[in-house]
Write a protein that binds this DNA or RNA. Structure first.
Lengths: 150, 150
DNA sequence: GATGAATGTGCAACAAAATTGCATGAAAGT
DNA sequence: ACTTTCATGCAATTTTGTTGCACATTCATC
């Protein structure tokens, strides 16, 4: 992982649609060397995958919400059970087990409040293991970065 | 945005590294038609960009933390000022202005606790506009999905 | 310092993919 | 029924990805 690798990773993190020859040009390498480096970074698992980032608003997911969840029973199996329930939901974009006053934090991407209502029903209903949940609707997304600083 | 477009978007959301001919094959289209559809989805802004997703652990960012922040002054300019301060930090991966008991939620990706300490100094110090902040360290990431359900 | 293994590099040739122009065919509106 | 619009497939062309090979560089061992 030298300077050139980092440069390649930074380029790929922000725009992986450019061609190999263009990238080789930018880092001052021949296309073949450049390609071999990228393949190695992929084999090593540094590059997990190449994906398209869609505009959520253009696909109807206009609402975001952060929800903190406090469980009734805190055993490992109960935690896992709730997380499995949560990650099975399409609207749950991120799910974390955390330290602090709560047990779980969820990031939701919703079409409308009706979907939120239905989701609360499925995840936070009386029969589930949820003692309390607290919702923070996202007013503004100031930053949402997929790139990792190197 | 018909069935084929959605199929293409789903393929691209999970693996944008496959070739155009492979994708054309999967959706049952000729390569040229497939390419034109993808270009249109990009022009329309449905596809925002193509990026490489790196493994944060392999780049030394092993700690994640969620921080809720309560401001002292709640005016729009104060909010914007704090958000601008936050998004300037490399360790801040996500930053949201939210409703609920707090004003801002940050998602941090940290190398170690020392970096967290230094970051708190810069963002939550006495001279800043922060009344209170509450940290939840991430124990487990159960889900972290870049794809939007269609 | 010399030697040898290991690794990375550029070049050239080849294979494969992206891209474009064009003609055909379907759908929509007049 | 007619025109317009739009998407599609085909074929030709350009561009890119890929591989084998010889050479240079680094590093460790003698």
């Amino acid at each position: 992982m030298d300077r050139i690798d980092r440069k390649l990773l930074n380029l790929l993190q922000h725009d992986a649609s450019r061609t190999n020859v263009a990238m080789a040009d930018e880092v001052g390498l021949s296309p073949s060397s450049c390609l071999r480096r990228i393949r190695r970074l992929r084999r090593n698992g540094v590059i997990q995958r190449i994906v398209a980032i869609l505009n959520p608003a253009k696909t109807g997911r206009v609402l975001k919400a952060l929800v903190t969840v406090e469980l009734k029973l805190h055993g490992e199996q109960h935690m896992r059970q709730f997380l499995n329930l949560a990650i099975g939901e399409d609207a749950v974009a991120q799910a974390y087990a955390v330290t602090g006053g709560v047990d779980v934090v969820l990031m939701l991407q919703l079409r409308d409040m009706e979907e939120f209502d239905a989701l609360c029903d499925r995840l936070f209903r009386d029969q589930t293991n949820v003692a309390r949940f607290f919702t923070m609707m996202v007013i503004r997304t100031a930053k949402n970065e997929t790139a990792v600083p190197l």
